[in-house]
Every structure is written in C-alpha cells, then in structure tokens.
Amino acid sequence: MGNGAVQEARQARKPRVSVKGEQTRARLIVAARSLLAGEDDVPFTTRNVSALAGVTHGMCHYHFKDRTDLIVAVVADIRPEWVTPMEEAVAGPGSFDERAERVIALLSQPEAADLARMHAALHWFSLTDERVRAALEGEYARWRACFVELYRVLATEREGGVDARPLVDAETLGEALAAAADGLAAIQSLGSEVNAAAVVRALVYGLVAGADRLSA
C-alpha cells in the first residue's frame, strides 16, 4: 500500500474513533444522570458511574478529569430540558401576550421527578464545589434572562404605543417572576390541587400591574 493509500486509510478511521469516543462520553453522562436522579444510596463517584455505564474507570477519566468535570457535563446536558424551551418560548414570534402564554404553559408543567432529583443533587454538590456552583449559576442566569427578555418585549411595545403608561422595568420584573416561579415549583411538588396556569398568569400580569401602580 502506497503512502497516499495509508494516509487515506488513517483519515477514514478517525471519524469512527471520534464517534466511538462521543458514544462512550454520552454513556457516561447518561449513567451520571441516572445516579444523580436515583433514589437509592449509591454514592456518586466516577468509579460507580463507570460501572453503571459499562466502561473502565480509566476510560471515564480519559473523558472527564474528575468527578466535578462529570457533574458539570450533566449540568450542560440537562439544559435542553428546562432552559432551552423557555428561551425558545420567549424568542419566538408574537406579541408580549402571545409569548407570555407560551411561558405560562411551560411554567405550568410540573417538573419531571428525575429532573427534580437531579436539580436537588446538583444544588447539594454546588454547596461545596465552586466549579459546580459556577456552572449551575450560569444555567440559572440563562433561565432568569428569559423572563427579563419577556418584559423587554412589553417595554418595546409600550415605547411604540400611544398611551401614557409607564415603561416596564424589565430586569426587576423578570427577576421577580423567576423567583416566584421557583416558589411555584416547590408548591407544585407538595400538592396537585394548585392551579398552576392561573397562578403563573396572575404572576406574569400582576407584576406589571403592581409596577404600574408604584410608578404612577
């Protein structure tokens, strides 16, 4: 086989190796998520994650330097399940009312049990691990920014309106809605009798009405 053929063969093998590596990494993250969301008492260690994923402990440390690296990867991995849908709901087309209804629909859905347990575990690790805390804070910052952006849409609509209503303090109202939404999630976990959609709708529009009265 000539040098050109050898080089082509090596290049052909690289994508397969890369794909295999990504598959192994994904299996480790799935296993890490399972342990974090588990209801048993299996300690969260790289050795236990490796065993659950069916890979060697050395291979786990090839992809993740330590336990913190693995936890931070989980923080990023769950983003599409709670942050991204909210970003898309606010960034989508429509008026403030239309976007607000999409936000209300999302906030009205009870958090999945496994995701709730993962969030609880991640918060626990963040108390003693600065890197986990930084990663988690970054995700929550993105989540809160969605609500700020929602009220910025209303502020923009008012700027172009003909009435004399005061402009919206988007940052204050957005942060207030985020804090209230966290509280609602806790209430929902304690009782199913809460009308989540009605509560969230009251929050979204009640914050605006209250701000208007204070600034009038």
Rank of each mutant, 00 (worst) to 15 (best):
A198D: 11
L167F: 06
L203C: 03
D212I: 00
D169S: 07
R158Q: 07
A135I: 05
F125A: 05
G21Q: 15
E87D: 08
L136T: 11
A26S: 15
N48W: 00
I187E: 12
Y62R: 13
Q11W: 07
E81N: 10
G54Q: 09
V72A: 01
E88N: 11
L214F: 04
A76R: 15
A76H: 14
A145Q: 13
W143G: 01
A209I: 02
A9Q: 12
A120I: 00
E149S: 14
A134M: 06
E130H: 12
Y151H: 07
E159Q: 13
V103E: 05
E8D: 12
P110H: 03
R67Q: 11
V30R: 07
E101F: 01
H63L: 07
A145E: 13
L107A: 13
V83S: 02
L214V: 08
E130S: 10
F44M: 10
E8Y: 06
L177K: 08
R201S: 15
A198P: 02
I187N: 03
V72H: 02
E98I: 04
T84C: 04
L173S: 11
V75R: 08
V55K: 07
E98S: 09
A178W: 03
L52V: 08
A32P: 08
E171S: 11
I29Y: 03
G58L: 09
R79V: 05
A76G: 09
Q188N: 12
G54D: 12
R213Q: 10
D169V: 01
A180Y: 09
N3Y: 10
F64L: 03
L136F: 07
A51F: 01
A202P: 00
E98T: 08
T128Q: 06
L36I: 05
P93G: 05
V6Q: 15
R201A: 15
D69Y: 07
L52P: 05
A196W: 01
I78E: 03
L177W: 03
V75F: 08
G160F: 14
A100I: 02
V132K: 05
G160T: 12
G191T: 14
E149A: 15
L122H: 05
F96L: 02
T56I: 01
W82Q: 05
A197T: 09
Y140E: 13
V55Y: 02
R16E: 13
A121H: 07
A179L: 11
A180C: 07
A180T: 09
Q11P: 00
A26R: 13
R79F: 02
L122R: 06
A76Q: 14
Q188L: 15
D169R: 12
I187W: 05
F147H: 15
A5S: 13
A100Y: 00
W124I: 03
A113K: 11
D212E: 12
